[in-house]
Structures are given as C-alpha cells and as structure tokens.
Computed example of a mutant assay.
Amino acid sequence: MTWSEIGFFALVVCAALVFLAWQAASRLDRLHRKVAASRIALDAQLVRRATAALDLASSGTLDPASSVLVAEAAYQVMDDVVSIGLPPTTDRPDPRGRRAADVVAAALAMDGLGAAREHAESDLSATLREALGSAQEVRELRSADPGDQLVGALAAAWYRASLARRFHNEAVAQAQRVRRLWYVRFLHLAGRAPMPLTVELDDALPDGLDPVAG
C-alpha cells in the first residue's frame, strides 16, 4: 500500500469519525431541546393544576378547614413558581406574570423543578387527596354544579400534569443515556450543558378522581 493510499484511507476514516461525531452532537442537541420543551410544558400544566385547586378551594364546595389547607398548599406552589421570575407585586403573586425569558432560562438549566418546588407540588397532591376524601366523597362533590365543573377541571389538569411529568422524565432518560456513551464523554459532545435531571414528586391522583384529559 502506497503512502498516498494510506493517506486517503486515513482521510476517509477521519471524515467518517467527524460525521459520526456531528450526528451524535446533533442528536444530543435535539434531546436537550426536547428536555427543555417538556420542562416548560410540565411547568405550565402544574400551574394549571394549582389554579384549579385554588378555584375549588374558593368555591365553598369543600368544608372550610379543607378549603384553607388546599388554598395554602396551592399558594405555596404559586410562590415557588414565581421565585425565579419577577418580584412579587402582591401578597400572592400570579405565576402568569413571569417573563417568558425566566421560564425558558429555568427550563434550559435542566435541573428539574428544584427541591422546594417539588416538595410544594407533592404537598399539594397530599392535601388535595385528604380534602377530596374517598371515591364516594368525590362522587358526591361531582353530583351537582359547581362541584362537578370544578372537580372535573382539577381532574383534567392533574391528569395532564401527570402525563407531562412522564413525558419529561422520558426525555431526560433519553438524554442521560446518550450522554453516558463513551464517545460522547470522550469528545465532550455535550459541551457545557448540564446533565438533565428528572422531576420527582407525588402526583398520584385521589381515588375516584377520573383521569380525564378533556
């Protein structure tokens, strides 16, 4: 084999390696974007769930003690939501007042929701389960308006939030698998992007709360 043939063969191998590295980097970039997008979607669905819980708590449908507990748990979620955004302008800030840039920046950090937010969301789930009670009590709440409408809205928001968390964690798992590949680590194809983290919280629906997505 002549030197020219060896050189040509080495050039082909290098070109193939560069192409494969480019493919892997592109795939990883797409996965990171998928994680960020699913994180934004999850955040929005959890805010809708907290809003639906507040609507239920303020409706007079629940007993007074349960209404207070649910409202406090939902407000805690709202407070944690805006903690990365605009300074509160009221005692109970509206999470919809956050700048879009704040939401995107939090998603690009790919560090889940943070321990405080996950704890607040889990506490809201536990408080709602306690307030709604058994499946029979849920059916009684839904026996007439406004209970039927409010509980139905909460069920839909809760179900969508659960699905959004599942999709987000699947996206994170995909990205983590790719980032653990030896050639991805050896070539530093992830750059300075942080390792994505899953969102771990209690979002189990109460008994009798139909998981409807409508």
Rank of each mutant, 00 (worst) to 15 (best):
S4Y: 00
F8K: 04
A10D: 00
V13Q: 08
C14A: 13
A16I: 12
L20M: 12
L20V: 13
L20P: 05
A24E: 15
A24R: 15
S26V: 09
L28V: 13
R30I: 05
H32W: 06
R33W: 06
V35Q: 07
A36C: 08
A37D: 04
A37H: 01
A41C: 00
Q45N: 09
L46I: 12
R49Q: 06
A50N: 08
T51H: 05
T61L: 01
D63R: 07
D63P: 01
V68G: 02
A71W: 00
E72W: 03
A73N: 05
A74H: 02
D79E: 12
D79M: 12
L86F: 05
D91A: 08
P93A: 01
A101T: 14
A105M: 10
A105P: 02
A107R: 04
L113E: 04
E118M: 03
E118A: 00
H119D: 11
H119E: 14
E121C: 15
S125Y: 01
T127D: 01
L132Q: 12
S134H: 15
A135G: 15
Q136H: 13
E137R: 11
L141S: 10
R142C: 13
S143K: 08
S143L: 05
D145M: 04
G147T: 14
G147Q: 11
G152L: 13
A155C: 14
A157F: 05
A161F: 09
R166Y: 12
R166M: 10
H168N: 11
H168R: 09
Q174R: 10
L181P: 11
W182F: 13
G191L: 03
P194V: 10
P194T: 11
P194G: 11
M195I: 10
L197R: 12
E200Q: 11
E200N: 14
E200F: 05
D203W: 07
D207Q: 04
D210W: 01
A213V: 11
A213N: 07
A213L: 14
